[in-house]
Computed example of a mutant assay.
Amino acid sequence: MRLQTHRTTITAALFASLFTGASFAESCDHDHVSIRGDFGSMSFRIEIADDVQERALGLMHRESMPTLSGMLFVYDRPQPLSFWMRNTLIPLDMIFVEPSGRIAKIHPNAVPLDESAIHGGDHLTHVLEIGGGLAAKFGISEGDILRHSSFNQNEALWPCG
């Protein structure tokens, strides 16, 4: 009986998403970030880096990353953010994000192992790293909006709901 109820719930949710344009990935769970812009909307499965040790390690030493995956770096307060590619083996798009969820800057195809500072801006709370070239491939642009539970929902342009 319990399995049937679970199947019914999943079927109803899938049916609803077909007619509303909603998706499971847009539900603000901790493991996904959604992006909305002129291209439409999409979601990436993410790891969170929200403390000093996790942010220092980031995506270093990884030889690959699934296409719709990434890492979301989360900071407690708005601040200037710069990143580098020390010990990072794969090219990355770095998406620098304001406290409201608006994309302030995209640095495409950061070069593996390059230790040059990549400055994203001065009033930032998040950085999303995805595979190099994916922002352009999917049409993600500066000014697009991110949605995730780590944003202050009172300030978010696209709050969880």
Rank of each mutant, 00 (worst) to 15 (best):
I130F: 03
D31T: 11
L157I: 00
P80Y: 06
L113F: 11
H123R: 10
L157R: 06
L57R: 11
F15W: 05
G40K: 01
H6V: 14
A13V: 11
R45K: 11
G37H: 01
N87Q: 14
L81A: 07
R77D: 14
H126N: 08
Q53R: 13
L57K: 15
T20R: 03
F73T: 08
L128P: 00
H107R: 10
S150R: 14
L59D: 08
F83H: 01
G133E: 08
P66L: 09
G70N: 02
T125F: 10
A135V: 00
R62C: 10
H126R: 07
L18T: 01
V33R: 05
H107A: 13
N109A: 09
E26W: 04
Q79F: 12
E115A: 13
N154L: 14
L68V: 02
Q79A: 12
E54N: 15
G70E: 01
T5S: 11
H123T: 13
F151D: 03
D50R: 11
R36Y: 06
S34I: 03
R55F: 13
T5K: 15
V127K: 06
L124I: 12
C160E: 08
V52P: 15
W84R: 08
L81R: 01
P66F: 10
M42A: 06
R7P: 09
D93R: 04
M42C: 07
I90P: 04
V33F: 09
E54S: 12
A16M: 06
D29T: 12
D93L: 05
G70Y: 00
E63G: 07
L68T: 08
L146P: 00
Q153A: 08
A25D: 02
E129R: 05
E142D: 13
D93Q: 02
T9P: 09
E54G: 15
S27P: 13
I118N: 01
R102T: 09
V33H: 11
N87R: 14
D93G: 05
S100P: 10
A136R: 02
F39K: 01
L146Y: 00
S100R: 04
E115H: 13
I106A: 08
H32V: 03
E142A: 09
P159V: 04
R55Q: 09
F96S: 06
E129P: 07
G131F: 03
G131Y: 02
A104V: 07
I130Q: 01
F83S: 03
V127F: 04
M60P: 14
V97I: 15
A56S: 15
S100G: 11
R77K: 13
A156L: 00
A22F: 06
G58K: 08
R36D: 02
R36K: 10
P66N: 11
Q53C: 14
P112I: 13
P108D: 05
H126M: 10
A135L: 03
L146A: 02
A135N: 00
E155G: 15
E98F: 12
A22E: 10
D144M: 00
G121D: 01
N87E: 14
I130W: 00
G132H: 06
L146S: 05
P91W: 10
P80F: 06
M60E: 14
T5Q: 11
W158K: 02
M65N: 07
A135E: 03
V33E: 02
G139W: 06
A25R: 01
E115C: 12
W158C: 05
P159F: 07
T20G: 03
R147L: 02
R147Q: 05
V33Y: 04
T5P: 13
L89E: 15
G101H: 05
P91A: 08
S141A: 12
F19S: 02
